[in-house]
Amino acid sequence: MSPTRPILLAGLAFVLSIPAVEAGPVYVASQGAGALTRIEAGAGVVAASVAVGQGIAQVAAGPDGRLYLTQPDHAGIDVVDGRTNAVLRRLPFQGQAFGIVASADGASLFVGDWAGGRLVRVSAGTGAVEGSCAVGRDPAGLVLDRKGRLYVADRESRQVSVIDTARMERLATVPVGEGPFALGLNPRQDRLYVANVRSGDLSVIETGTMAVIATVKVGGMPYGVATSADGGLVLVTNQQAGTVVVIDAASLDLKATIPVGRYPEGIAVDGVSAYVANWFSDSVSVIDLRSLTETARIPVAEGPRSLVVGAVSEAVR
């Protein structure tokens, strides 16, 4: 992965690179409609919509322009070629695939098995199992750092599991709030933000010590989290209130509350914009991170939950 080709993903947020953010296309997975929608950075319209299959939950982007979508109710992972909008195949997955992230080289996928309480490493080409390890109950959001360390939000175990992906071993568990769902790693990767759906707050983990150093009250149901490209802002969707809460990363003070659509869930940062999947409203809100205002609301297929910023177009040509 070249440092000039950042992939920023949130909801299951992970941030691979900091400098010279070159915005890539945003992909939105609509679970109800089973469609994957592409929005070009800076554009307020839908560039393409791909019928993948009803039930797609979370989406991950590979470095080669491929998109991977979990199918928790259909024991599989759907693969889409972002360059051609073609649905390539459904990889088999023994379990209830939910959270997903691709390895830096794109050869492997890390997949959370919701019902099985496992993290599974599979081949991105064939779906063959390459390894697995136990995590907590109902693993939700995943995030992979640049060193190959992976964090899992164990929703029903009130903890984050920390995995060494080279050995597929759990290194630690970090107790957090109730109902941790989404994870966001800052660009320096020294802070992991955990959105706790049931306790309505955000746990801040110092990754160097694996300690929770602060808990920030958000209210309602925080369902997605991401950071701005410079790491200065933490953005949290509050599903109950229909807002994005903006927190100053240094002081952890509330900086703004931005109304978006109903039941916002996943949030991803792409350059100077944040994109928010409004699950109930079937739309994506675009937030300008300089003015902290919603600048567009783009209609998409029914039930958008997860979104990811794909490789920049140069990388996929």
Partner: peptide
Amino acid sequence: LAHGPTPQK
């Protein structure tokens, strides 16, 4: 077990 993977409206 509070939650599953497929929400409905």
